[in-house]
Design a protein around this nucleic acid. Structure first.
Lengths: 213, 213
DNA sequence: ACTTATTTAAAACACTCGTTTAAATTAAAC
DNA sequence: GTTTAATTTAAACGAGTGTTTTAAATAAGT
């Protein structure tokens, strides 16, 4: 069983699911390998260490998502010179939904993994993301700044991190929130609905009026 | 050394600092007790278990903060009938800053602990907070709803959780963010400055215009 | 077909964790 | 001052962790 190296894929598939659900440090290699039905040692054989497995799990999505997002943004910038802020954020929706074609629940998994990563990581993941995808990131950040040029760079720094917190936390607990919304308000949401709910919130936040003491 | 039961306090003081810095599950009892200069077993003797220690650390702040916040809000509601949303959020500022009188860096520690709690907790902390301080929480939530009555209950549910994510994430990484802001923008911020930056963001987000596809 | 390299397998290693036990110490009660 | 209770201490327990090692099985190269 487990011919050739779909072992690697089996590990990645099992790992991403468990990582998204319970976080990185709360997920043991033994749990991953038992769910993947592979041998414990194969993780270290194929990935070297748990840290590198975590990076590999994220890279599988980032390698698809980042170029897609950059492409869409470039296309939009070619069409018109000034882009409303909300539209900059909306540029991310399609690339995110593309991930569902990559794997079942790909969008949710990716966003939750990203959330876990930013929350848990003691640097190694932050470092990995910024050094491997830094250009895509700053391209996006620049586009945001151009959309609302009246906001000082320093304030923009803070507001974009607020935004990061908003989506990261929302996605890390998206499953629980969707359940509650279903029970309390008879709202049957999927991840796309949540994304479309959060975008106006973030756009309004980033573009908030200042010095309103 | 460590006469009577300031052992309990020494443990709480050391624990809250470490919990805020590195999270609950990443902080071992051995690290706590060595920083507190007490015996390892004293944690289980005084608190029963690590879980109960975590709850005790949070309760020490919540018991002060929650009544203060409710009082301020009640006072404001007595003064005028309609309160602008931003003012409802601002009600939390003074109670938060009061915590600095309780202990050095009390405000930062509390907010970071709260962030860690909401991120890490597999239920036991969420349960603890809602059952012990649920009345204060819903009193605040109701005040928010009254400030922006045009927003449907279901949308408000989502937006308040977005808000929770914003502050929780911001506070959990506040130290790192303040360092970056100092290096990149020569901004010397303290926790109060960050709070005052985030409030307009959250208020604008909660009050964002709808269906702006 | 035989050899070489790759992959899988089972077991052990070395370590950390929260918790418990039982004895020693300190404080309180009378 | 003696007895009783509360607290501190050192040591061990048992379970779980990521990683390494060694040998067996499988696939590839020639």
């Amino acid at each position: 069983m487990a011919s050739r190296s779909d072992t690697k894929t089996r590990i990645l598939d099992a790992a991403e699911k468990l990582f998204a659900e319970r976080g990185f440090s709360e997920t043991s290699l033994r749990l991953i390998t038992s769910k993947a039905e592979v041998n414990l040692a194969s993780v270290n054989y194929h990935f070297g260490s748990k840290k590198e497995l975590i990076r590999a799990v994220l890279a599988r999505y980032l390698d698809v998502f980042m170029p897609l997002a950059t492409d869409e943004l470039k296309q939009l910038k070619a069409e018109k010179q000034h882009i409303p802020l909300e539209q900059v954020f909306s540029v991310l929706v399609n690339p995110l939904l593309e991930l569902n074609k990559l794997r079942p629940d790909g969008t949710t998994l990716f966003l939750q993994l990203l959330g876990r990563g930013y929350i848990e990581s003691q640097g190694h993941l932050r470092w990995f993301i910024t050094t491997h995808y830094g250009e895509h990131l700053s391209f996006f950040v620049d586009a945001v700044s151009e959309s609302v040029p009246e906001i000082p760079k320093a304030d923009m720094f803070w507001r974009l991190h607020f935004t990061l917190g908003t989506i990261v936390f929302t996605m890390a607990s998206a499953d629980a929130l969707m359940e509650i919304a279903a029970a309390d308000f008879n709202e049957q949401n999927d991840i796309e609905a949540v994304i479309r709910k959060v975008i106006p919130y973030m756009a309004a936040g980033v573009n908030a009026p200042q010095l309103t003491a």
